Simulated scan of single mutants.
Amino acid sequence: MKQLQLFLVIGALLGGFSFTNAQQTIKEDFQPSTLNQPGQEYPQVNSQGYARFKIMAPAADSVKVSLGLGGRGGTILHKNADGSWTGTTEGPMDEGFHYYHLTIDGGIFNDPGTLNFYGSTRWESGIEIPAHDQEFYALKDVPHGQVHKILFPSKVTNTSAVAYVYTPPGYAKDQSKRYPVLYLQHGWGEDETAWSNQGHANLIMDNLIAEGKSEPFLIVMTYGMTNEIKFGGLKTFDITPFQTKLVDELIPYVDSNFRTIADREHRAMGGLSMGGMETKMITLNKPNTFSHYALLSGGVYTPEDIKDQSGIQLIFLSCGSKERPERIKSATSALKNTGVNVVSYISEGTAHEFQTWRRSLKELAPLLFIN
């Protein structure tokens, strides 16, 4: 458990930017990031993955762009005669989505040029580095599902708790059809909006279903930090409140209010980072609730963890190639030797970040509910 905690904390999803090591001549083909506010020219990205920032702060003495928790490290911006501050990352960044914020004279601020996303327990600025494989989560002219915001009664939180439910294309038309469900958890410092906003889970599913690569199913996303665990405090995490919220409150509500196939064989749970840790704990504690397990940069299962294989249809393990792929490969081999249906996936060229998890969902979805 200590190893899992260290793994999750070191790679924490706050992590900001991950640079490649190669030094190269920077191409001046910068374009505004796709996540910019309407009409805003900065931040910008180029074809190599460099990012360039411009901030108006005429009274400031120092401005930098954060690369991680608390603004440690980062890209130092330089002041221009007009009071603006500009700077370019030292190296190209990994493909996909990244959180960041500004540190101006010691204070932390968001970049007014870009949209905000909930991560690291606050609303952070976001930037998107175009990926060579971005078509799988692109908005295309295909039938689209819907993402519903629901409120469900929760004694654990002593209020109405929030969840988002993705229903696949055609859900509203055929009132006789029922669907399997994937309960999908976010990482530390995020909330129930992460998989839709940062992860594009709905678009990934729309595209896979349109291409005939995945069975249609519901995805349910809810807030998993019931204990309000602070960064670095995973050793004090108690799964019981969230487990009760999910298994005893949310699942019955979803089964009562959506057309689900309400049995273990048609119910999956997965999560990224800390959500993977929650997934492992709950699936082992409640073996009769889920039949498909998925840990995305969230640790591994071992043969010793699996007391009874009979109800497990799939275990899916993934991470980025810049994380600990050897651990995923070793666990996969060990589980296969015991007869478990296990599939692993390594996202090439990415770390503990959303491009890893977008790709992981793309690989996971076609494997679910096919037996």
Rank of each mutant, 00 (worst) to 15 (best):
L296Y: 01
L296K: 02
S297L: 05
G298A: 04
G298W: 04
G299R: 06
G299T: 08
G299F: 00
V300N: 07
Y301M: 08
Y301E: 02
Y301Q: 02
P303W: 01
P303F: 04
P303D: 03
E304N: 14
E304A: 14
D305T: 10
D305E: 12
D305N: 13
D305P: 12
I306V: 12
I306Q: 03
I306H: 03
I306P: 03
K307R: 13
K307S: 02
D308G: 14
Q309V: 13
Q309L: 10
Q309T: 12
G311N: 13
G311R: 11
G311D: 08
I312L: 13
I312F: 07
Q313Y: 07
Q313S: 14
Q313W: 05
L314C: 05
I315T: 13
I315D: 06
F316M: 06
L317P: 09
L317E: 01
L317M: 07
L317H: 07
S318L: 09
S318G: 12
S318I: 10
S318Q: 11
C319G: 04
C319N: 03
G320P: 09
G320H: 01
S321G: 14
S321F: 06
S321P: 08
K322I: 14
K322C: 10
E323W: 12
E323T: 11
E323M: 10
E323H: 11
R324W: 10
R324Q: 01
R324V: 11
P325F: 08
P325A: 09
P325S: 08
E326M: 15
E326H: 15
E326L: 15
R327K: 14
R327I: 12
I328A: 02
K329Y: 13
A331V: 11
A331N: 10
A331E: 09
A331F: 09
T332G: 11
T332M: 10
T332P: 14
S333A: 08
S333Q: 09
S333M: 08
A334M: 12
L335W: 02
L335I: 05
L335E: 01
L335V: 04
L335S: 04
L335M: 06
L335H: 02
K336W: 03
N337Y: 10
T338Q: 00
G339M: 14
G339W: 10
G339F: 12
G339C: 07
G339P: 09
V340K: 08
V340T: 15
N341D: 13
N341M: 11
V343I: 13
S344L: 07
S344Y: 05
S344K: 11
S344M: 00
Y345I: 06
Y345F: 13
Y345L: 12
I346P: 01
I346K: 00
I346H: 00
S347I: 06
S347F: 05
